[in-house]
């Protein structure tokens, strides 16, 4: 599944210039995920890793859907910040 990231580097940015995503390797994203609190990593794994809906994730984790959404939004904002700084 490296394909996603490779495709992205081809698509993004002006090919005449340095692709903005070229320096973001999966390992860096992995490190960013590592640094998240456990509760955020769990919901990230369920929704983004396993494609559960928010509601399904809420049922698995025994938390309200609103909690899933707030944890997930925080986790993903943090990922974007960390990978953008890379």
């Amino acid at each position: 599944m490296m394909e996603d990231v490779e495709t992205q580097t081809h698509l993004i940015g002006d090919p005449g210039e340095e692709p903005i995503m070229s320096k973001i390797a999966l390992a860096e994203v992995q490190r960013a995920i590592d640094s998240l609190p456990q509760e955020q990593r769990e919901v990230l794994a369920l929704v983004c890793g396993e494609d559960l809906t928010y509601r399904e994730a809420a049922e698995v984790l025994h938390v309200p859907v609103g909690t899933v959404m707030s944890r997930l939004a925080r986790a993903r904002k943090r990922l974007v910040e960390m990978t953008a700084a890379a």
Partner: peptide, 12 residues
């Protein structure tokens, strides 16, 4: 984008 990257990490 964060979803796609996360998905790639978990799948890889």
């Amino acid at each position: 984008q964060s979803r796609r990257l996360t998905r790639s990490v978990f799948a890889s």
